[in-house]
Nucleic acid binder design. Structure first.
Lengths: 204, 204
DNA sequence: TGGATATGTGAACACCGTACACTTTACACC
DNA sequence: GGTGTAAAGTGTACGGTGTTCACATATCCA
């Protein structure tokens, strides 16, 4: 299991070989079948574990930001998303296995689940009255954006050296697309436009 | 090649076996090495071709929307994104191969490239003065959101039966996060908020 | 003491990617 | 037309893989 996680960490799902994992723990290939129903089942367990460590990293990134202010909720939201992308870039193999398609009968739940961590952030934003869209449909677009950035950067399809700008632009898009605008003065960007900065019309 | 594309279509990259592809065209396994440097090279060609058909679908979806108005540019932008997600859901195997990490020496360019199609849409939006962020950094967040939705829906991680709502929420987030707001009356949504609908402050 | 249950073993099967030496085919050129 | 060269295809082989099966051991409870 931990041997398989090592393999996944260095080679992704394609790098996970049942025989090699068995060899690493000094056991025959067939012995592995006493613990895992199949290679796919082994991958499902590695994936669940990977999602858990991702969930923990997200928690660890947002937990230090204390307070129940809207400002804090916003900051936690961003920190969580950033941690998600960081994990994908630091552990591409584990990240791939974490979100690999998995037949439902093999799927193993995870706790803390990345999705749940995101949900908590959105609950906090909702409590602070900062959601510009209905709470019910808020997870999907937020997750989708962060996941896309994680995947495209992680696979090198979007250039790694523009990482910081891309992450920032993505988080900005999520904030501007999902949340109510901040107070006038708190948006300290380099080149402010000449136009006035009125409040934004909420949707839905 | 077309045999490999069939295999990719039904089994994704893991379903592509050099031997099986050779068998399907009635040829010995070693003969395949006269045409492809390796399995990875074969996958690179299949991937390039898959990206091309994706690019064509995006073009086909946006081309019927004529006109140079801002309204048309917005509509093309959305149609392009929708086509991207549709492709991922209709051809999950090809989509996976299209965006699989590929060693640079094996990478084969594609034309029309999905990225280029997106770029053209953004150029049109920029010409119409509808971009709320600098043109330079606009591709990444837009692509990221649509790609994330395609991946998470395609793999069944986000529920397929909520597909339409998720796609709509994602496209709304992209529009609201990247573009200037539409004129007051054109945002015909079911439950409009009580707040007024002022213009939105641009960023950057 | 015995027997059930968990765990491990070795051999076997079918598949895979890849390499090598060899043959066949096709085509351009003298 | 004959010939040489390059492209394409062949068979065999090696090592790796997932999976199954019949069999061994070991552990623990009644």
């Amino acid at each position: 299991m931990t041997a398989a996680t090592e393999l996944a960490g260095s080679g992704g799902s394609e790098g996970v070989a049942l025989r090699e994992a068995a060899r690493r723990v000094g056991v025959s290939p067939s012995a592995a079948y006493r613990h895992f129903p199949s290679r796919e089942g082994l991958l499902a367990q590695v994936g669940s574990q990977a999602r858990e460590t991702l969930g923990r990293r997200m928690l660890a990134a947002s937990a230090p930001i204390r307070g129940s202010s809207g400002r804090a909720a916003r900051a936690r939201f961003r920190a969580t998303g950033r941690a998600y992308i960081d994990f994908a870039l630091e552990e591409p193999g584990l990240f791939e296995v974490a979100f690999r398609p998995c037949p439902p009968e093999l799927y193993i739940p995870d706790d803390p689940s990345p999705f749940a961590v995101l949900s908590d952030d959105l609950d906090a934003l909702d409590r602070a009255g900062l959601l510009a869209i209905p709470r019910a449909g808020a997870e999907a677009p937020a997750w989708v954006a962060v996941h896309g950035a994680a995947v495209l950067l992680g696979e090198g399809i979007l250039p790694r050296d523009a990482r910081e700008a891309i992450v920032e632009a993505t988080l900005d898009m999520v904030s501007d697309g999902l949340l109510r605008p901040r107070a006038r003065d708190s948006r300290a960007r380099a080149s402010a436009s000449a136009r006035p900065a009125p409040a934004r019309r909420p949707r839905a």
